[in-house]
Amino acid sequence: MGAMRVLLLAAALLALACSHGATASDPSLLQDFCVADKMSQVRVNGLPCKDPKEVVVEDFFFSGLHVAGNTTNKQGGVVTPVNVAQIGGLNTLGISLVRIDYAPSGLNPPHTHPRSTEILTVIEGCLEVGFVTSNPENKLFTKVLNKGDVFVFPKGLVHYQFNKGAANAVAIAALSSQNPGVITVANAVFGAEPSISGDIIAKAFQVEKNTVESIQAQF
């Protein structure tokens, strides 16, 4: 009987530990806000809090998303972010925003957000959007969106948007992180500093090394 009680107690403790572990990665706030102190030299997973007595209303404010971004670049697309770097009051709140502008045939190239799911709304124009699932399926989910349409890109998956229309397009996207991060696939592979060996990339993409070197030269 004693051994059975010990076994039941161990099982209960394990269940309790698992339950706490499931929620430990995203704890509830312990205060009303934690405005980022960008002058602090303290290094934490995020940003340290400013003294609440020094917090002002501007710590929760950003102006400028009504202004179109400059799309005169090779991709014909530009992202205007509103994350913790722009609004210190976003610190610890787990959310951010971007405006994306696309010239005709403009592209927000294949990329991932390592720390965030994204939900995108088309404000103007017509976009082809898509994301690719992980190995080994690598299945593409793609759809054409018009004004007012909404699409979700799951956390960490490679995704893109392409302006299929003859006019400029605009989208607003919300992300589930104060600092979602961006890894643009082409930049990471072909624009790494120092460069990834051409032999390695050529083997990975099953192309000639001179093709790789030609692409690397564009970055």
Rank of each mutant, 00 (worst) to 15 (best):
L14R: 09
A15H: 12
A17N: 05
C18H: 12
G21T: 04
A24W: 08
S28Q: 12
S28D: 14
L30E: 15
D32Y: 09
D32S: 15
F33T: 10
C34A: 12
A36D: 04
K38Y: 08
S40N: 09
V44H: 05
V44M: 08
N45D: 10
L47A: 10
P48W: 06
P48H: 08
K50H: 09
P52C: 14
E54M: 11
V57C: 13
V57G: 12
E58L: 06
F61A: 12
F62I: 10
L65S: 01
L65M: 12
H66I: 01
A68Q: 11
G69Q: 00
T71H: 02
T71D: 04
N73L: 05
Q75S: 13
P81C: 03
N83K: 03
I87R: 03
I87S: 05
G88M: 01
L90R: 00
G94E: 02
L97Y: 01
V98C: 06
I100V: 15
Y102D: 05
A103P: 00
P104M: 10
S105N: 13
P109F: 06
T112G: 00
S116N: 08
S116W: 05
T117L: 11
T117S: 13
I119P: 00
I119F: 05
I123S: 09
G125I: 06
F131A: 03
L140R: 12
F141D: 07
K143P: 07
L145G: 00
N146T: 14
K147L: 02
K147Y: 00
K147T: 15
